[in-house]
């Protein structure tokens, strides 16, 4: 075997061996990819609570009870659902999911 074909580092050699054995994962696969793609309900809860609370604060400040809180809850719900939608696509990087889906 030619000397230049021998991978230099142990991790390269392991990667080559895994590839030859059909166990290879390409370089783009990450630990995150191997984790379950189940959407996390926490995203929804946190978004609704955070925007609802912001609305509540704005209501107290501007004396517009209860409209800004309701608006905040609604925005939180939409943002939370959007996050769930993206999580279910397996796209953690912003906008990646949409790009992949459309192409």
């Amino acid at each position: 075997m030619a000397a230049e074909e021998t991978p230099r580092t142990l991790s390269d050699r392991i990667a080559t061996a895994r590839k030859n054995a059909g166990l290879a994962s390409d370089a783009t696969e990450t630990l995150d990819d191997r984790m379950p793609k189940a959407p996390n309900g926490l995203e929804l809860v946190v978004a609704v609570c955070a925007f609802g609370f912001l609305g509540f604060g704005a209501d107290r400040w501007l004396d517009t009870k209860p409209w800004l809180m309701l608006l905040g809850l609604l925005i939180g719900l939409v943002v939370g659902l959007w996050n769930l939608h993206r999580a279910s696509l397996g796209a953690d990087a912003l906008s990646v999911g949409l790009v992949k889906k459309d192409r």
Binding site: E43, V46, A47, A50, F51, I75, V78, V79, G80, W82, N83, R86, A93, L94, S95, L98, V99, D102, R103
Partner: peptide, 25 residues
């Protein structure tokens, strides 16, 4: 990154707002 490709111009402002808010969360 807040402006996804392939989104119709009509709903683009809405999607950008959603992306920014979801980034802030």
């Amino acid at each position: 990154r807040f402006v996804p490709h392939g989104v119709p111009a009509l709903i683009l402002p809405f999607i950008v707002a959603l992306e920014v808010l979801s980034y802030l969360v």
